Simulated assay, not measured.
Amino acid sequence: MENNIVDLSGRTVIVAGAAGGGIGTTVTRMVAEAGATVVAVSRSADNLTTHIDPLVTDGLSVIPVAADVATDDGIATVMNAAGRADEPLYGLVNVAGGAAPATWMPSVRVSRSDWRELFAANLETMFFMSQAVAAELKSQQRSGSIVSISSISGMNTAPFHIGYGTAKAALVAATRTMAVELATDGIRVNAIAPGVTATPASTTYVDEDAERDRRAIAMGRRGRPEEQAGAILFLLSDLSSYITGQTLLVDGGLNLKWTHMGADHTSLFLKDESFRAAITMP
């Protein structure tokens, strides 16, 4: 790809969690535009049809795969699809994860099942998908790059969302350890930690309030999916060839101010007062 400083041509990249219409879909598009073949993975065939098929129609080299990367069978399906791609495996982006509204609650109310569900969704999927890709790269004696999505909640406090924040913090620790183990194989392992970003999923929690955004975020606005995807593309690419084991905060300076909590220590971004009351209930 001439005149393109980010060139991933001749490489296959897996994006796990590609079809939500937010960061994962944007990463899929941008990585494919940089020349890679992208194995775009989602549990939902309907979401693949809605968000990924148009990229294929536009002529991008994207392979939709319906699979649940929270299972061994799902990971095997993804790896088989990557093995059938025309270009050799190079990279992985772990987007899959998140948390349902019901997982917001005081620490004293968190059950073992709540805790395990959040760790399964946000840590185990990242680790076992990364393990599979790293093992395949090692077997081929090929270098590569793995990038996962943590969260600002994993880099600071996460009041009333302790399971999610702790799982995302554990993802950062796993990133650092895998980076050391895989460094001499030429496999880099990094992460990003997004701040509040305008995605379809974020509308569950966040309403439109420009004044609050100016007050809470140093740059005065929420992020866009392409801004998160741009950081991921950088960490995938040869531009970051001497970077490993790092988690890059992509939050517009939200962590620098950390003033988005009210007197009750709940996030000012929560739009529904009944939801706020429910999660703080003893």
Rank of each mutant, 00 (worst) to 15 (best):
V6T: 13
T12F: 09
A19M: 13
G21D: 10
T26Q: 12
T26W: 14
T28M: 01
R29C: 14
A32I: 02
V38N: 06
R43V: 15
N47E: 15
L48V: 09
T57M: 09
G59L: 15
S61F: 00
V62Q: 02
T71C: 05
T77V: 03
N80K: 09
A82T: 03
G83E: 08
L89P: 01
Y90F: 11
Y90P: 04
N94H: 11
A102M: 12
A102R: 09
W104Y: 13
R109W: 00
S113W: 13
D114P: 08
D114A: 10
D114H: 12
R116L: 14
R116G: 05
E117R: 06
N122D: 07
Q131Y: 06
E136G: 03
Q140T: 04
Q141H: 15
R142F: 13
S145C: 07
S145R: 13
V147H: 01
V147S: 03
A158M: 03
Y164I: 00
A167D: 14
A169V: 04
A170I: 14
T177C: 10
E181N: 02
T184S: 14
R188I: 05
A193D: 00
A201T: 09
T204W: 15
D207L: 10
E208F: 02
A210G: 04
A210R: 11
E211R: 06
R215M: 08
A216K: 06
A216Q: 07
A216S: 12
M219L: 15
E227Q: 12
G230W: 04
S237A: 05
D238S: 08
G245A: 14
V250K: 01
D251H: 08
M261S: 11
A263T: 00
D272A: 03
A278Q: 07
I279D: 01
M281A: 15
